[in-house]
Design a protein around this nucleic acid. Sequence first.
DNA 1: AAGTCCATCCAAAGCGCTTTGGAAATGATT
DNA 2: AATCATTTCCAAAGCGCTTTGGATGGACTT
Lengths: 345, 345
Amino acid sequence: MNLRELAQNLGLSQTTVSRALNGYPEVNEATRARVVQAAEQHNYRPNTRAKGLATGRAMAIGHVIPMSKQHEMVNPVFGDFIAGAGETYSRNGYDMVLSLVEDGQEEKTYRDLRGKGAVDGLIVHGPKSGDARIAMLDDLGVPFVVHGRASAVTTPYAWLDVNNRKAFQRATDFLLDLGHRRIALINGLEELDFASRRRAGYEEALTARGLPVTPDYLHSDEMTERYGYDTVRHLLDSDAAPTAFLVSSMITAIGVRRAIEERGLRMGRDISVITHDDALSYFKNGEEAPIFTATCSSVREAGRQAAQMLLERIANPHLPPPNRLLEAQLVVGGSTGPAPTSRTD
Amino acid sequence: MNLRELAQNLGLSQTTVSRALNGYPEVNEATRARVVQAAEQHNYRPNTRAKGLATGRAMAIGHVIPMSKQHEMVNPVFGDFIAGAGETYSRNGYDMVLSLVEDGQEEKTYRDLRGKGAVDGLIVHGPKSGDARIAMLDDLGVPFVVHGRASAVTTPYAWLDVNNRKAFQRATDFLLDLGHRRIALINGLEELDFASRRRAGYEEALTARGLPVTPDYLHSDEMTERYGYDTVRHLLDSDAAPTAFLVSSMITAIGVRRAIEERGLRMGRDISVITHDDALSYFKNGEEAPIFTATCSSVREAGRQAAQMLLERIANPHLPPPNRLLEAQLVVGGSTGPAPTSRTD
DNA sequence: AAGTCCATCCAAAGCGCTTTGGAAATGATT
DNA sequence: AATCATTTCCAAAGCGCTTTGGATGGACTT
């Protein structure tokens, strides 16, 4: 059933039917009711492609998900982020088109998506510090919102981010207050902006107390379970084994815990762990008694808000690009405790 | 830059330019080369909507991801499944459109997606035993492939599934061989077809040896970490505590491990655990020495293949619907061992 | 020299919708 | 009764592409 048939059926012109369905005022309410009812009855849905052609809007938002070539890995936070964004889209009649792309190929995909006219706007995932995509998208004139930031980019652009620096600074401070002095950072890939900000927060907290940053304690890799396990296992073997770990992802923290418990040690008593927690739905940290002390920030909520920002930006392209900084909560759980011996080394 | 402008630029008709770019034979190779070069130089990309309107094909596949209302949870396997499917799509010039929908609302979304003409085909996720969507999609005449099966549906339809029954039967047998007699099943929601098949395999193995199925050992819920933890914690408190657990998801198995270790017990020595492992990229079970004994089947590969099946089905709608049954590997890891006391109770 | 056949190109219709620029009918105003 | 403003509707153009049904001209036959 298409518009022409529906109009014929009703003995009306396409114009009137179209207007009736799209809520234009120049149509009699009685007529409109008739049209709406007929449309429903015939299960009529306007063809997106035709509508898009006519209006010049795709009613779709593009998400380009980077996929690590190395581990064939898709960051698990995307699932939740997209779930949040999807809520906003479906409330507003937008579709979501997804492309999974190998690391570094993202630019071409953005170009394609826009060139083809497949999307009205884009969400940029996993920004690097001086991410080239931002300039490119500005250049293309596509509305976009970055999930995260690109510290080295100075031109204004729309972003939504968690205050990663502050979160990790506070977490480090918390560990320092507990007497820990040998704190290792099990970070994500530091080419990613969020990871470098977390590191900055960590280092800031240390230097604020006049403590040195020990290179041996700094680790950076893709946030798999295995990475957490291997790294901590190795670190616990070293001469000056850390008494505390600051971890960038829940998944990695699981590996960290595995390495600790394998040693017969207990989290919160022998070794302290703080992890960042994106509040993934299938991996709740626990409400009443969280397993991990964690810096919490719901990535799903971030998805909701980023999508909202993007839709507003599409509606008002001339407004200055909006920014939003979400603060992470430092939630105390069972994985932290006073340093075993509170000497300052 | 659109086709008309490009054609004007070249002093050719739109027809010729279109044909040149789409590889039709009735155009001089020299002309084609000129056209291709100009298109590249001007960064020309045909407008998908216009192309779609003209051809009647959307060049897009729809995925409708069910989202549990209860836990706001998106099953983490979707990320990997979609990553696999995405590979196939991008190789074939298809886009992927994603809708996240609350449990039970899926039907309407399928209808919409098809009615709007937004997609050429659909992947059906999370089928229930007598899933109504299959009849509906058949009715709508949309090509589709089900990831999983709907046991109660008797009409032929296209599906790709893991042999869940056999996998869990073998896993149960394996535990029985090790002398375990009190084996609990920590299953997913049994309204989902895969879960009921797993249960069937489990029960089959027990009854084949003349062993009873103990209702207290049967558990079914959304596969969160917490669910595994809570359930096992509770079971270990009971009079006839199980000596082995058969778990439906890696994430849940993490919770199971947590509960076990919290008791001061050790997996593989005091308690045996087998889990199904979807080979999620960020949560590898470990190559050389797997943590868990597991029934392994890559959901990413499933995505790749399901997408391939769908594209072929779109190309040849009259062929009988294809089916594919993947076998899971039973990989022995460190989480299983002989039953503590090998008496048969 | 006339007819035939390719190879190469083009004009125009059509995909299903929105939207512009009226037209017809109705009711209010003089 | 004539005029005017409103309301309500419509015909047709246009969005950017594909595709049908020729047109054109050169090479080849006969």
